[in-house]
Amino acid sequence: MKSRAASAAGTVLLLAALAVLVAFPAFVSNPYALHIMILLFLATGQGEAWNIIGGYTGQYSVGHAAYFGAGAYGTLVLLQKWNIAPWYGAWAGVAVALLLSLLIGTICFRLRGPYFVLASIAVAEIVRLTVLNVPSVTNGAEGVLISDLPPFTIGGWVVTDFSTKVPFYYIALALAIVTVLATWAVQNSKLGYYFQAIREDQDAAHSLGISLNFYKNAALLISAFFTALAGVFYALYVRFIDPTTVLPLDLSVQIVLIAIIGGIGTIYGPMIGALVLIPLSEVLRSNVIADLLIKSGLVGVDSGLGIFLKGRLAQAHVLIYGILVVVVILFMPQGVLGFVRKLASRKEQG
């Protein structure tokens, strides 16, 4: 009884949150605020997509930048070189990512545990170096820059000309929602059941007649599909890509972090991970804290601490990020979500 009430309350809460998100741009027009929200949706999409292969299937790919980059490059290269509108080019980018995932899957799924992790890194690095070394197609290290996006039209009707952030906001939101729904669908399907069986015990799953190769590849394919879509979105939103922004190892790690900080193998985990990481990295990077402390008079501008905060704290953001990662892993091995659940269940018990 109680759980049904709780789930009803949960549904209401979820719908309310959704309504707030949909209405958000109507009340907040500040592009910076929209930008942060867009980054949040993008991170959620990335985290959820990784979660399907990493969280549910237990294959810790640290090479997802390859799919992200494939989506991004496919779209922008076609747009720049052949003037193919991004809503078609995007699918070419996604197709490249899917092919890549099949190739990578066939190579890497023969390996397990740490070997799989290292192989996924190696393949992603090969993709990055290849993009860097075929400038005739990809512009190499110079990257691809698009000054203006063609307006999105249906028939003769201009849906949007992308002059503000609002269309991007809704696209990103839609992308995040679709990825979450897909994760939900996977979790509640036979497919998801097989995935989780593989995660829990590969050999046992195999002996039950679950084809490891087929289902691992299926999971990677789904994961790569949504990661590539996120890449497509990123490319169209930023309109500049190069190998160091859409293909580096750092990005792969970042994607894994979103899921793990939040809690893997759950639908809410990556959302929470994004909610923690994106605002945190933005606040730390832009040094808002130091500014506030100084302006409020808590810390004098010319005092030693003030000079340190203003001059050096901006440099410390990656350090704080690193400390956060270590703390979460040591004290919340199931991620923030797992930690909260544990606290809640402890409370319930006594």
Binding site: G143, V238, D242, T244, T245, R285, S286, N287, A314, Q315
Partner: peptide, 10 residues
């Protein structure tokens, strides 16, 4: 002052 960490999106 803003740090871009060398990354265009930042």
């Amino acid at each position: 002052k803003e740090d871009d960490t060398g990354k265009p999106e930042k």
